[in-house]
Simulated assay, not measured.
Amino acid sequence: MSVLWVLGAGQLGAMLKQAATPLGVDVRPVDIESTDTLALGPTDIVTAEREEWPDTVATKQLATHSNFVNLATFPQLADRLTQKQWLDRLELATAPWFSVEADSTAAKAHEILGERVLMKRRRGGYDGKGQYWLKQSESIEIPEEWKGQAIAEQAINFDEEVSLVGVRGKNGETHFYPLTLNLHINGILYASISPLERLKPLQSKAEAMLSKLMDALDYVGVMAMECFRIGDDLLINELAPRVHNSGHWTQAGASVCQFENHVRAVTGMPLAPANVKNQSMMINLIGIDVDYQWLNIKGLELYWYKKDVRPGRKVGHLNFCCDDLSVLQSALSTLNLPDPYPEAFTWLSKNLPQK
């Protein structure tokens, strides 16, 4: 079996390695700042846990390997301008937008997109970073450093945020996980729930949208599509050509998790439709220290990333999967975490199916 190299050595790389171990696949995540000369073989395979990377000794070696799966896709989706252009080209619904250029003005942005406009950096920016609001009532102008470096989107008054995680094989075979309901606080994903019976009517529509994109890109592996739900319609907000935070619940809640299906896809193994086990929920651990007493809570599964704890940094997550909804509700009432977690727990309790 060839080695599967992962460009990036964060938590996603670690979870890919964990999922690949039972399959006998040797996964080697590589720090993007590494100065080591990697022992890449000609039949080895390269994937990535991130959309873009700096130009370093390690990344140069990996990014020039002939078996880097989806190499051409990353620059197209990492840049929000070309990502939006792909969505428009494929006639996939997204928020009205335009490219912020040297002559762009806030007045023109409001004329085109309305009273509230969100600017996003074309590159980078995640967990609420790389964003700048233009609100007509505040008479804010576009900063010079944003011109030519951003897109502007119409603010969407959405009902909910949902995501779809799918996997596509080299032969075009696709499988999808159930739609996931997500809660973001200050731009950071705090909690997810899946599956939900009430989201099932949107499943086929979401699958058709993501399939159209993956087929057009001839994409291989796991991709995530984050959407705004507005009534019975979906607008694509962001795309991630990799395993995704909103799919972490599949580690506990599905017969084959997103990480294993990604490994299968990029190495050419048979894919597997995921059988959903029970009701799942996921809670991100953000800027808080690990407490191993959490393991006393029934149904809780801890994933700790071994990162330095800093405000706003994802340092782990908790998965729950159970057919007894009272166990999930009990876990929410037992966990004692600082603000804004009470808001997240209330949201989870409200959106979990009722008995």
Rank of each mutant, 00 (worst) to 15 (best):
E141W: 02
A95W: 07
N319S: 08
L40C: 10
D88M: 01
S192W: 02
Q329R: 13
T174K: 15
E238I: 02
P195M: 05
P340V: 06
G114S: 01
L210C: 05
Q136F: 01
V220K: 02
N278R: 07
A265R: 15
Q85S: 06
G231K: 07
Q136N: 10
Q18I: 00
L199T: 13
M15R: 06
P54N: 11
K212Q: 13
T56G: 09
G128Q: 09
W133F: 13
M269S: 04
L325Q: 07
D44G: 06
F259N: 11
R28S: 04
Q76W: 04
M209Q: 13
E160K: 14
E173Q: 10
T35M: 12
V165Y: 03
G13M: 09
V69W: 07
S192Q: 07
C257W: 03
G299A: 09
K129Q: 15
A19K: 06
M1N: 07
L352Q: 05
P273G: 03
K135M: 11
M282Y: 12
S139K: 15
A14Y: 00
S2K: 11
K84R: 08
C321A: 08
R122K: 11
Q354C: 03
Y132S: 02
K135C: 11
S330E: 15
A206F: 02
A78H: 08
F68E: 09
I283V: 15
C257R: 03
L7S: 09
K277D: 04
A254L: 11
L199C: 03
R122W: 03
E115Y: 00
D323C: 11
L92A: 03
R264H: 12
K170P: 03
I230M: 10
L16D: 01
V327M: 15
S192D: 02
Y126D: 06
V263E: 08
L40K: 09
E160M: 00
A331Y: 04
Q131P: 03
L199W: 06
I140V: 14
W249C: 05
T37S: 15
N336E: 12
A252E: 15
R168I: 04
V3E: 10
G172E: 10
E160W: 09
W86V: 04
L295H: 05
W146Q: 05
Y177L: 12
V243Y: 00
E141Y: 00
D127S: 06
L318D: 01
P195D: 02
D291Y: 08
C227A: 15
P42R: 05
A150C: 14
M119W: 03
V3R: 14
V167G: 00
L318T: 11
E145N: 12
T82Y: 10
E115L: 08
L118Q: 11
P353C: 01
V69P: 10
G10I: 01
R123F: 10
E115K: 15
E343Y: 10
I140K: 12
